[in-house]
């Protein structure tokens, strides 16, 4: 019987460990995305300033903005596209306007395409790093300061930075 017990314990332990492993896949996946650029995710924290500018080539960066149908805002980039040298620090703004008569809190989720270039898209300052509260009817320009890493492989010439604006999760849950 004790032979049974020790084997059962090991197997149960394995089950618990695998259940935990399922949850461990969440942070592991983030690391995996960081390395491989799945879904074009970018870092949620500020990058270091560029150390050089690569004058030898230009990259086109396009800006897109969409919002979840559940949040009534107007949301658009001020600039549609930029041509810039890798390493060149630039600031562009996205304009958001609260179309409701109540205060809302929004979160912006960035996505860079092609995904494999995402880790070469460096944001020094971004409105997506924090939640953005908006007063009723408020309209504001939200800046993002970024550069394209000079290490960006030469096969990428067009990058797209897209934001999707959501009502922040804490707020929708409390409603």
């Amino acid at each position: 019987m004790s032979a049974h017990r020790s084997l059962i314990n090991k197997l149960l332990l394995a089950c618990v460990a695998m259940f935990a492993f399922g949850f461990a896949l969440v942070p592991l996946y983030d690391v995996f995305c960081d390395i491989t650029g799945i879904n074009g995710k970018t870092d949620k924290v500020a990058a270091a300033a560029p150390d050089r500018i690569d004058r030898g080539r230009e990259v086109t960066v396009e800006f897109l903005a969409t919002h979840d149908p559940a949040v009534a805002v107007n949301f658009a980039p001020e600039t549609a596209r930029l041509r810039l040298n890798p390493g060149d620090l630039q600031t562009v703004s996205f304009v958001v306007e609260n179309r409701t008569g109540e205060p809302i809190v929004t979160t912006a989720v960035p996505s860079v395409s092609p995904g494999e270039a995402a880790r070469h898209f460096m944001k020094i300052e971004c409105f997506c790093f924090q939640e953005q509260p908006l007063a009723p009817g408020e309209r504001k320009a939200m800046p993002v300061q970024f550069y394209v890493d000079p290490e960006l492989p030469a096969r990428f010439k067009n990058l797209t930075l897209s934001y999707r604006l959501y009502r922040s999760v804490g707020q929708s849950a409390s409603r």
Partner: peptide, 19 residues
């Protein structure tokens, strides 16, 4: 109110597909 698979809270629907 968790956001494992919802982009709004920093999650990703593709993660579910991997798991």
């Amino acid at each position: 109110g968790t956001s494992f698979f919802q982009a709004a809270g920093g999650g990703d629907p593709v993660l579910f597909q991997h798991i």
